[in-house]
Amino acid sequence: MSLQEFEKIFQDKVDQDIRIEPKDWMPDAYRKTLIRQISQHAHSEIVGMLPESNWITRAPTLKRKATLIAKVQDEAGHGLYLYSAAETMGTSRDELIGQLHSGKAKYSSIFNYPTLTWADMGAIGWLVDGAAIMNQVPLCRASYGPYARAMVRICKEESFHQRQGFEILLVLSQGSPAQRRMCQDAINRWWWPSVMMFGPNDDASPHTAQSMKWKIKRFTNDELRQRFVDISAEQIKILGMTLPDPDLVWNEEKKHYDFGPIDWEEFREVINGNGPCNKERLAARVQAHEDGAWVREAALAHAEKRKRKELERKEVA
């Protein structure tokens, strides 16, 4: 069969929502793009543990400490599901980690911002996880089987994250004047970076068309972003807070919220390594990997020793 015939069979499957599995034929470009998309999603989960871990030791109550730890643990798990899915496509964990540490691979821009107060934990859960859920739910029907299945698992776990975050803000919004100020301040700092999580505008996003044809992207950046703004603008009313956008206004004709201009210069700077915490985040990951080398070696040595002891035990018996 010719290349075109293979490609036609592949595209027909995708068009009919028949999942592509690891050993199925797929175009090289599909494989490469998916490895990059899935691994960058995985990197985002792992790096995403860092801004929140920052507040574990300073959570205001034991309950809040336990729930924050559980959320961060989930993020580690999500990263692992996604690395596992990427590895089914013929790459190794080492290769992927190497790309993250060398700066070759990207991760979500949002995690390059600092967490300055406890209220940031609430803003992240509500807005950042909220934006992630908006992106992830449609991907449960992505064309690549292992990716779609990982997304189903992730989505089940993600909903507690958003509820945990909103609940933190709700309690603060009903508290003292200082707590209410802290709540509004966190929202002011996390709103626009969350809006930018959806990526460039559709007309500045050349890969979107191909990704939608391959069903590894089910809605465009602007479609998801609009949905996120519409939903968040309603949810914030319950907090009695405001979004830091003077141009945010309900458009009765379009049945959507109009919103203000995004600072794409900031987005570009953060994506290219010049955000407030890029260097710190990468350094933390590299250090964790290097500091953990002895653990990895020791585990292998211990496994060898255990195997030998087991063999000796069997010989004697």
Binding site: L80, Y81, S84, A85, E87, T88, R93, P146, R149, A150, A299, L300, H302, A303, R306, K307
Partner: peptide, 11 residues
């Protein structure tokens, strides 16, 4: 359910 890396079966 998926895959993971480990040094041996128990791990």
């Amino acid at each position: 359910a998926g895959s993971l890396h480990a040094a041996d079966a128990q791990m």
